[in-house]
Simulated scan of single mutants.
Amino acid sequence: MSELTHVQLLWLQGKIENRIRFGRTVQELRLDHYRREVAFAPGSVFAFVRWSSNDYGTVLSRISVLQAVGPGEACATVPFVAPGAAILLQVVGWPKVERVLQQIDAIEALGIDPADVAPDHWWHVQNRMAAGQRPRPYTILRHRAWLHRRSVMP
């Protein structure tokens, strides 16, 4: 059994798009013109966007910020993700997905890779959005504190 978390990506123009918004892949396999499979090392954080439509418009908009798990670690089942992942954030519906994408853009504007953001920030965003409140922005100071905490507490 692989120690990696595998994500199946699919793209059918105007119908289905499953893609990675951010994250560091360690493996990629092109299955055909429409499908790829990417893999993440345990502990990696990545954003998985799923969108689909039919003849009448958008049917599904979803974004999940996930953390890859190692062998034997508890995980949630997520469609197209094997064996599963820890869910840090998950929202459904274009207005909420758009707000999460704006959060990601704001983090990137600071020069921070969203894959390096403190995992509890994604929980914070999830919880504030669920409560109908605006999430606090991620800051350089908060990021430095997270990097320091991670360096002293492995």
Rank of each mutant, 00 (worst) to 15 (best):
R21V: 15
F22T: 05
F22D: 05
G23K: 09
G23S: 09
V26F: 11
V26W: 11
Q27C: 03
R30N: 09
H33S: 09
H33N: 11
E37I: 13
A39E: 06
P42K: 06
G43C: 02
F46N: 05
F48G: 00
V49P: 04
S53G: 12
N54G: 09
N54M: 00
D55H: 05
Y56N: 13
T58C: 07
V59E: 13
R62Q: 14
I63T: 15
I63M: 07
I63H: 12
V65Q: 01
L66Y: 14
Q67F: 03
Q67R: 15
V69S: 02
G72T: 05
E73L: 10
A74P: 11
A76T: 15
A76F: 07
T77V: 13
T77Q: 14
T77E: 12
V78Q: 10
P79V: 03
F80M: 12
F80Q: 14
F80C: 02
G84T: 07
L88Q: 06
L89G: 04
Q90I: 03
V91E: 04
V92Q: 13
W94M: 04
P95I: 11
K96C: 01
K96Y: 07
V97L: 02
R99N: 02
R99S: 02
V100Q: 01
L101V: 00
L101Y: 00
L101P: 00
Q102I: 00
Q102N: 10
